[in-house]
């Protein structure tokens, strides 16, 4: 299947969902959703005393007539919530003999479509040699382009080279296998800074979660090309599983520490993992 087909598949899947927008995300540019602050909508929110600089058009003259005090009338602001989709574009997301890249594209398209359904704007960032936006990323996912998983740099290096200009009070979703040695908090703090909500979706291939069968194995790092020969037996397999569990636990703990939500799903079981995204309050049925 081609890139477009994966995006279309994800888009079709996302028609059933809408992005769950948290209250903290109801801020931003003028849009078609009521924000949590006072704005220019027609929905009355509150009164307060006039302060210098307030728009004189909002003075409620009837109240002034009755109380001889300048009081302005506050209306709810109308905002467009925003989704910043951060995709790990490293080569490990395109692991050979696995549907990892396809699942990433489908999941990104699903979230983009769900954002559309939730009247959210959205942007898609690719973490390669710095962060770059995908072409046509404000349009429907099927129009996205330039999504390639070819980077050899981990996410923290991309942040260092060229950080993304993430929308304030936006919903930020990181889709990555998180397979690089880094202190999770360094990434999460940058993602959580100014965000209404942060979701970390760890997308792994089945091969990432299960060690190889017994025998001599030559492991090749998909990003660095580094090779390592090991003999896998029951002990080594158990050690691998323990290391993976520890790695997940460290990310989960860091997410809890920063208020982010952590979800780990397997690429081969993407469709079956969508309820987990609902549980994490990232998606709601449309």
């Amino acid at each position: 299947m081609t890139l477009r087909e994966h995006l279309l598949s994800g888009e079709a899947l996302g028609q059933r969902y809408a992005l769950a927008v948290p209250q903290t995300a109801l801020a931003g540019a003028t849009g078609n959703q009521l924000g949590r602050r006072a704005g220019t909508s027609i929905d009355f929110q509150d009164y307060r005393e006039y302060q210098p600089g307030d728009d004189l058009r909002t003075i409620d003259w009837n109240v002034f007539a009755r109380t001889d005090r300048l009081t302005i009338k506050l209306f709810r602001e109308e905002v467009n919530p925003h989704l910043d989709l951060v995709l790990d574009a490293s080569r490990s997301m395109d692991l050979e003999n696995s549907p990892k890249s396809a699942a990433t594209l489908r999941l990104a398209a699903l979230l983009g479509t769900a954002a559309e359904n939730g009247h959210c704007t959205h942007a898609t960032w690719l973490a390669g040699d710095g962060f770059q936006r995908a072409a046509n990323d404000t349009m429907l996912p099927s129009a996205w382009d330039g999504l390639a998983f070819t980077s050899r740099r981990p996410l923290d290096e991309a942040f260092a080279i060229l950080p993304p200009r993430l929308r304030r009070l936006g919903i930020r979703v990181l889709i990555s296998d998180l397979m690089w040695p880094v202190e999770p908090l360094t990434i999460l703090r940058r993602l959580a800074d100014g965000a209404a909500a942060v979701f970390v979706v760890q997308l792994l291939a089945q091969a990432d979660t299960e060690p190889p069968e017994h025998g001599n194995i030559q492991l090749v790092d998909s990003e660095t090309g580094e090779e390592r020969e090991i003999f896998v037996d029951a002990t080594v397999a158990a050690q691998f599983r323990a290391a993976l569990a520890r790695h997940r636990e460290s990310w989960d703990a860091a997410c809890r520490q920063t208020g982010a939500r952590f979800v780990s799903i397997v690429a081969e079981k993407l469709d079956a993992s969508l309820p987990a995204l609902e549980e994490a309050q990232l998606l709601v049925p449309a």
Binding site: L95, G215, I217, D221, T224, V236, Q239, A243
Partner: peptide
Amino acid sequence: RNRYRRREVSSLMLWQFAVLSR
């Protein structure tokens, strides 16, 4: 014989223990 089957992995970070063991 040293017949190693090649296998590409996302990262070698989870296999560090094996190296340490050797």
